[in-house]
Simulated assay, not measured.
Amino acid sequence: MRTTVDGEADTAYVQLVPEVIPGHSVRNEIVETAAVTVLLDFDKAGLLPGVEVLAATKVLDRELLACVERIDRP
């Protein structure tokens, strides 16, 4: 499992499979609450390769966000 964070966009992506191939996700389910929107990515087989969390800093633990891979920094 791999988790990346984009601080500029305030998003986090939790990759649940060893590799996510571009275009592999064919369907998204949107889950919205008052605090956050979560996008569930599904592949052709109906499996869940990843989850994207919008407004990540509002709902994810700061310690988690501090130790995951940052994609907004070189």
Rank of each mutant, 00 (worst) to 15 (best):
Q15A: 08
Q15I: 12
V17R: 03
V17G: 05
V17E: 03
V17I: 13
V17K: 03
V17H: 00
V17M: 09
P18M: 05
E19D: 13
E19W: 06
E19G: 04
E19C: 09
E19Q: 10
V20A: 08
V20G: 05
I21H: 08
G23P: 09
G23N: 07
G23S: 05
H24K: 15
H24M: 15
S25K: 02
V26H: 06
V26E: 15
V26G: 12
R27A: 14
R27C: 10
N28S: 14
E29Q: 11
E29D: 11
E29M: 14
E29A: 15
E29N: 12
I30C: 00
I30T: 12
V31N: 03
V31Y: 11
E32A: 13
E32H: 11
E32D: 09
T33W: 09
T33N: 13
T33L: 07
T33S: 15
A35P: 05
A35E: 14
A35Y: 08
A35C: 11
A35F: 10
V36E: 10
V36Y: 00
V36W: 09
T37W: 01
T37S: 01
T37L: 08
V38D: 01
V38H: 02
L39Y: 05
L40S: 04
L40A: 05
L40F: 08
D41P: 01
D41C: 11
D41T: 04
F42P: 01
D43V: 01
D43H: 02
K44G: 09
K44F: 13
A45E: 15
A45S: 12
A45P: 00
A45C: 04
A45L: 10
G46F: 03
G46I: 11
G46V: 09
L47A: 14
L47K: 08
L47V: 11
L47G: 13
L47M: 12
L48Y: 02
L48Q: 04
L48W: 00
L48K: 02
P49R: 04
P49G: 06
G50A: 06
G50M: 01
G50K: 00
V51R: 00
V51F: 00
E52R: 01
E52S: 04
V53N: 04
V53T: 07
V53D: 02
L54G: 03
